[in-house]
């Protein structure tokens, strides 16, 4: 086991445990905090793949901005035991069956996918994720989708301002 492998297993364990805790914790504020832990673990994986830009943007956008807004909303809502929907036996059973079948489909898909079979991830090498390469690629090969998505963002911003202005 070298350092990369140790880190990989640690981060994977952290990601999976935190993801489980998002679902298992009763308190929605705890769920949000576990979700932030998941984002950190995933950012750690990006760093192992030498995608530093992706890792740090993941933290700035998800952990630093979106999750703060989630926390805002949850903290201001008056969540307590009475407002929680009641769970009965049939509902739990249906949930287990549908979730389990989705898991089975996903696992079988990944096992059969020819694109990822017998291929290793490039650990700690490759410069595709570095900011210089990424920027050049975005403004040459992918300039049209990039600009279209910026228009999408602009329209979302205008929409937010319009909603905010409405009296």
């Amino acid at each position: 086991m070298n350092a990369i492998e140790i880190l990989f297993w640690l981060l994977s364990a952290l990601a999976i445990i935190s993801a489980m805790m998002v679902l298992l914790s009763k308190n929605p504020v705890h769920s949000v905090l576990w979700l932030i832990a998941v984002f950190f673990a995933i950012s750690g994986h990006y760093i192992l793949l030498n995608a530093q830009f992706l890792a740090i943007v993941n933290i700035i956008v998800y952990a630093g901005a979106i999750m703060v807004l989630f926390l805002f909303v949850i903290m201001l809502m008056n969540l307590n035991k009475e407002s929680e929907p009641k769970r009965n036996f049939w509902r739990i059973l249906i949930g287990i069956i549908s979730g389990g079948s989705l898991l089975m489909i996903l696992v079988s898909l990944i096992r059969q996918a020819t694109e990822i079979n017998n291929k290793n991830a490039l650990m700690e090498s490759g410069n595709i994720g570095l900011i210089k390469t990424l920027g050049k690629l975005l403004f040459s090969d992918y300039v049209v989708p990039f600009e279209i998505s910026s228009v999408l963002f602009l329209s979302a911003m205008v929409g937010a301002v319009v909603i905010g202005k409405k009296e």
Binding site: F53, I56, I59, I60, A63, A65, V68, L71, F72, M75
Partner: peptide, 23 residues
């Protein structure tokens, strides 16, 4: 490689201490 962005990311995490403590 992304030093300034890292600083920026940590700054954006600074709110959690205040928010969690206050709540």
């Amino acid at each position: 490689n992304v030093g300034i962005l890292y600083v920026f990311g940590v700054v954006s995490l600074g709110v959690y201490g205040i928010m969690i403590g206050g709540w």
